[in-house]
Computed example of a mutant assay.
Amino acid sequence: MEEENVKNTTITMATRGMTRTLNSSDSAKSDQSLLDSQLPILYTYITLMIFTSLVGTVGNIVVIVAVVTSKKLRVLQNVFIINLAVADLLVTALVNPFAVIGALDMGKLFYRLPALCEFIATMVVTSCGCSIWSISAVSVNRYIYICHRVIYSKIYNQRTLPFMVIGLWLIAFLLDLPNYLGWGDHIFDTRQLLCNYDYSYNLSYTRYHLIALGVIVPVCVLCYSYFRIFMTFRSSSRRMRQHATNPSSSQKEKPQTADRRVLKTVAIICIVFLVMWTPYSIIVVFDLHYQFWWFLLASFMAFTNSSVNFLVYAIDRNFRQAYSDIWKRIVSRCDCLVTKSDAIVTTGRKKTGSDVNDEITESSGNTNVAFESSMTSNVTSNYL
């Protein structure tokens, strides 16, 4: 009976999306029928979260392997791609699985282990923040490469890139630091079914620090970089039309094909990012917590951004080729394992009667040949 009361209490937490402490079972009975009607939505959320976690984890690992193993991708600027993949991997391989656990047991694990909840909440803010800022860093890198190519090597080189990567993680950590200093707080958020920062604990922290520094600023940087790249290409196209009568001049003004691919990739990254994070930002900034399922959907979309970034890179031909090479190596390795397995099965199969007769015949033939060879050798020796 007591266990049933606890179960009803946790159901109330999930249904209302507003309660931070356990309520009595009496208040849960009125919401039982509502939750029963919405269980398919919860199960769908869990299924999708598991699927995106698996796909995102494999995809981000493939991105890291592709950059490390491909000669065309093993360049300095792709350090930001690896950093983005690592941040996304933390989301897909660590944060999302705990989101599934939170949805399955309605946070009972995290109530028993508050230290684990603190750790997961820190990883949520830090990894998502670093992912967003890494996307922004990629766009800035491409902007300087295309629009200010003369100074590019002075800004991005082997000495400066490590400090830039460390700076991205430092910014991400500063996003969560106020939660340890009393400005914010970490809780098991029943609206997301996950340990996260408590956005309603102090709205000034949420609006003016976390969302401003963690979403709005990198989005502005991303949009500005894309806009400047776009204007550079537009200006180049205009100069091409003005010098159409001079082939040599127009050739100089013609943007490189690789730069056009960069423009397309940055544009799609910007669009995907805005689509995934805008609903969550609006709900948090305006404190629209009255609808539990809408909040859960917005959170799911924000976390899914870490699972689809590797697909955006496939727009680039070099990444597609690297993905293809990795797949071919995996298939080749599997074929080798199958071949070895078949060989073991063939050599290790049970001998039949015909196999024994063949071996006796072969053995007898070898014995006769050896005997004849020995006799010939003796005769020759005696003759000599």
Rank of each mutant, 00 (worst) to 15 (best):
S127F: 13
S139I: 03
V124E: 08
V125E: 09
V79L: 10
F173I: 09
Y143D: 06
R74N: 14
V150C: 12
Y152F: 15
L94H: 08
F119A: 02
V100H: 06
I81E: 04
I135F: 09
R149M: 02
W133Y: 11
R142W: 13
F119S: 01
L116Y: 07
F98R: 00
N157P: 10
L94A: 06
Y152W: 10
I166R: 04
I171G: 01
N83F: 09
V75W: 13
V140N: 02
M106P: 00
A121D: 03
R142N: 12
V91R: 02
T160D: 10
L104A: 13
G102K: 04
R74K: 15
V125Y: 06
N96G: 00
K154G: 12
L116I: 08
I135L: 14
F163A: 11
A87C: 14
L104Q: 12
N83T: 10
T126G: 00
F119L: 08
S153Q: 12
L170K: 01
W133H: 14
T126Q: 12
A85L: 02
N83L: 07
R74T: 00
H148D: 05
N96H: 06
G102C: 06
L109G: 00
N78E: 09
L90Q: 09
I120L: 05
I166Q: 03
I155R: 08
I135W: 06
N83A: 14
R142S: 04
S131D: 05
F80W: 03
G107Y: 11
L170R: 01
N96V: 14
V138G: 01
I144R: 05
V165R: 01
